[in-house]
Amino acid sequence: MNSILEIEKMSLQFGGVKALDNVSFHIVKGEIFSLIGPNGAGKTSMLNCISGLYQPTTGSIRYKGKEIVNMKPYNRTKLGIARAFQNIALFAHMSVLDNLKLGRHTLMHSGPLSGGLYVGKASKEEIKHRRKVEEVIEFLELQDIRHTPVGTLPYGLQKRVEVGRALALGPELILLDEPMAGMNNSEKDLMARFILDMHEVMDTTVVLIEHDLGIVMNLSDHIAVLDFGKCIGFGTPDDIQKNQDVIKAYIGEETVI
């Protein structure tokens, strides 16, 4: 089994509060992996640790066999890890295109002026990065709103742009924190299709936090369940639906799918 990410005995503590408590699981390259649990269970804290925003108190995070627990977020991005946030973190007055280009420019290697002085090596880089941004715009079906200021868009489209900015980095591993929150059913169905295509067409490994259990069970290859910072279940969707600890703490007898 080819694991792209391994979490081992990881804990995160804020004063006397343990946000994560000795959590271990692994994620297989190319799969859709979901992280579920009640509000406050530690799901977003886990993504913050993987992306480098939080430093775990103890434990290990290995990406493609390399320990990254002490690595800065920017260096994790260069390794192929990207993150879309639950709370939209876009530049509202900038266009969809410019938001995606801004995210992509974090990978520029030609110096601090390369974003505005397109000569020589920087010019070639800009063409390459612009091509990737255009691929993401087409993939997420954003062509008609490419020049629209993000702040004027409906919430569902803003969420799609948030995912697009992470996808523009060309990640091998993308972390999606509730990408369907606040969406109606048709918007959720569309986002689910995009996530499947990330997995099947782009061969991107997806880590998904989502509260809609129907979507989680239909999309996921494996699932980890957190409750009060502890991992109380890990396995296939079928395993999770039969796990009595998970049923008691989160799913409930009446909502088993």
Rank of each mutant, 00 (worst) to 15 (best):
residue 1 M to S: 00
residue 254 E to D: 14
residue 83 R to M: 14
residue 191 M to V: 04
residue 117 L to R: 15
residue 199 H to C: 03
residue 162 E to H: 04
residue 130 R to Q: 03
residue 221 D to Q: 13
residue 90 L to V: 02
residue 252 G to N: 09
residue 31 E to Y: 09
residue 30 G to N: 08
residue 161 V to E: 07
residue 149 P to A: 14
residue 61 I to D: 03
residue 212 D to F: 13
residue 218 N to R: 12
residue 35 L to F: 01
residue 117 L to W: 13
residue 228 F to A: 13
residue 221 D to E: 12
residue 8 E to S: 13
residue 92 A to F: 13
residue 228 F to R: 15
residue 190 L to V: 07
residue 43 K to D: 09
residue 221 D to L: 12
residue 81 I to P: 06
residue 152 T to W: 06
residue 166 A to N: 11
residue 235 G to Y: 09
residue 233 G to Y: 10
residue 10 M to G: 01
residue 126 E to N: 15
residue 138 E to L: 11
residue 257 I to T: 11
residue 105 H to D: 04
residue 200 E to V: 06
residue 174 I to W: 03
residue 20 L to F: 02
residue 252 G to T: 06
residue 93 H to S: 10
residue 100 L to V: 11
residue 231 C to H: 08
residue 164 G to A: 14
residue 69 V to R: 13
residue 92 A to E: 12
residue 169 L to R: 05
residue 11 S to M: 12
residue 103 G to I: 02
residue 49 C to P: 09
residue 148 T to E: 15
residue 61 I to N: 03
residue 89 A to G: 00
residue 77 T to S: 07
residue 66 K to W: 04
residue 57 T to E: 03
residue 168 A to Y: 10
residue 155 Y to L: 07
residue 172 E to V: 01
residue 185 N to P: 05
residue 111 G to E: 02
residue 240 I to M: 03
residue 62 R to H: 03
residue 115 G to A: 07
residue 115 G to P: 07
residue 166 A to K: 13
residue 56 P to D: 06
residue 189 D to V: 13
residue 58 T to Q: 14
residue 114 S to I: 07
residue 142 L to Q: 00
residue 40 G to E: 03
residue 37 G to T: 00
residue 139 F to D: 00
residue 20 L to M: 05
residue 91 F to A: 04
residue 166 A to M: 11
residue 126 E to M: 15
residue 35 L to I: 05
residue 177 D to E: 06
residue 67 E to S: 09
residue 257 I to H: 15
residue 73 P to I: 04
residue 197 D to K: 14
residue 173 L to V: 05
residue 102 L to S: 06
residue 140 L to T: 08
residue 6 E to P: 10
residue 236 T to S: 14
residue 235 G to K: 08
residue 119 V to L: 15
residue 55 Q to T: 12
residue 135 E to G: 08
residue 203 D to I: 02
residue 10 M to V: 10
residue 91 F to L: 05
residue 75 N to H: 09
residue 199 H to N: 14
residue 250 Y to L: 04
residue 169 L to V: 01
residue 144 D to P: 06
residue 217 M to D: 01
residue 220 S to F: 05
residue 243 N to H: 00
residue 190 L to K: 14
residue 166 A to C: 09
residue 96 V to W: 07
residue 12 L to Y: 05
residue 42 G to S: 05
residue 119 V to R: 15
residue 82 A to T: 04
residue 125 E to M: 15
residue 48 N to S: 15
residue 69 V to Q: 12
residue 30 G to I: 05
residue 243 N to F: 00
residue 60 S to P: 00
residue 109 H to C: 00
residue 34 S to R: 04
residue 21 D to A: 05
residue 79 L to C: 07
residue 66 K to T: 09
residue 167 L to T: 02
residue 136 V to K: 02
residue 179 P to K: 09
residue 91 F to G: 01
residue 124 K to T: 13
residue 158 Q to N: 04
residue 156 G to I: 04
residue 175 L to A: 00
residue 58 T to M: 09
residue 163 V to A: 10
residue 200 E to L: 12
residue 29 K to G: 03
residue 117 L to K: 14
residue 120 G to S: 08
residue 55 Q to P: 02
residue 146 R to T: 13
residue 60 S to Y: 01
residue 13 Q to I: 02
residue 138 E to P: 06
residue 2 N to K: 15
residue 37 G to Y: 05
residue 52 G to P: 11
residue 11 S to N: 03
residue 164 G to I: 11
residue 149 P to R: 14
residue 211 H to P: 12
residue 214 G to Q: 03
residue 205 T to N: 15
residue 7 I to W: 05
residue 19 A to T: 02
residue 39 N to H: 06
residue 38 P to D: 07
residue 137 I to V: 08
residue 203 D to G: 13
residue 176 L to V: 08
